[in-house]
Write a protein that binds this DNA or RNA. Structure first.
Length: 285
DNA sequence: CTCCAGGGATCAG
DNA sequence: CTGATCCATGGA
């Protein structure tokens, strides 16, 4: 892979394991807008980025080499060798071979922790289109306008001292009080998001789960999608279904059995395996 | 109309 | 520790 600045765009050549549709639609991220097939607008880090793709050429519109190197390179996890990851996961595993064959262009985005946390709090018992709407409503109501109809996700300060009833206007529903609790615990220093990178995974999980409305699934998503903890295996209804069906011969198993299974089978690659399986399950069952 | 969604809190046994 | 019920909201 190599890249070059052409006018106002940065163009990636010879990109492998990269499909912008699969990356965005696989459920890890909620702040994007589809303009066309392989033509998306992403809002992250208070910036608006349009991406188009043709084959293994990816164009980042209206950006600079500086932003590409400082923000988007890590955001899209471009330093990681996904070919090797896929090869290791598919070794002696026909299920994973199908999943990877279906969507081998998935990459795990490295998102901002704060936004990721609030987004996945909203995700509980909710549907993806509704989650996207609620997150966007919060951004329009409390964030800053970046350009056109695009707004940055609100900062912690911008959500400070808001009542649950106010946040419900953004269609967050019963989760509004959970958002308030997250804001409070972070703003009073009880939870320090910027120290997560120094901590062990179980320690982060305990801290996240001290927030009302954050359980094992939401905390695993936050750790996988914004803390680079690839050994976790976020287990929701879809993952349960596909793991039963494809690995346990339709036998209903407990959460702990699924975690033990993923840990033994996928180990440090469990998070990647989860994304391939999740997208495969969502689109095919 | 009813049912349910990328879960988790709460309560009963 | 395991299971049932409820939660806002809106689309099917």
């Amino acid at each position: 892979m190599n890249y070059e600045q052409v006018g106002n765009d940065v163009i990636l050549h010879n990109t492998n394991s990269f499909n912008i549709c699969e990356i965005l639609e696989c459920g890890q991220c909620f702040r994007f807008f589809k303009l066309d097939a392989l033509d998306y607008v992403i809002v992250a880090f208070s910036k608006v980025l349009r991406i188009t793709q043709q084959g293994n050429t990816v164009k980042f519109h209206n950006t600079t080499t500086q932003d590409f190197e400082n923000i988007w390179f890590d955001y899209f996890d471009l330093q990681r060798n996904y070919e090797e990851i896929k090869q290791r996961l598919c070794q002696d595993d026909e299920v994973m071979q199908k999943a990877v064959n279906f969507a081998g262009g998935i990459r795990i985005l490295n998102q901002e922790i704060w936004e990721c946390l609030i987004s996945f709090i909203i995700s509980q018992n909710n549907r993806i289109p509704m989650i996207k709407k609620a997150v966007n409503n919060l951004s329009v109501s409390y964030g800053n306008k970046i350009c056109d109809e695009y707004y940055s996700f609100p900062t912690i300060e911008q959500l400070l001292n808001k009542e649950p009833e106010q946040l419900k206007l953004c269609k967050t529903g019963f989760r509004a009080k959970y958002i308030c609790d997250a804001v409070n615990k972070i703003s009073n220093g009880e939870i320090k998001l910027n120290e997560f990178s120094k901590k062990q995974t179980p320690e982060i999980k305990t801290e996240l789960m001290s927030i009302n409305g954050v359980g094992p699934k939401v905390s695993d998503c936050v750790m996988l999608f914004s803390c680079k903890r690839h050994e976790v295996f976020p287990t929701d209804v879809w993952i349960k279904r596909i793991v039963y069906k494809l690995y346990f011969n339709d036998k209903d198993v407990s959460l702990k059995e699924i975690w033990n299974f993923s840990n033994e089978k996928f180990g440090e690659l469990a998070g990647f395996a989860q994304q391939y399986l999740f997208y495969y399950a969502r689109e095919n069952f």
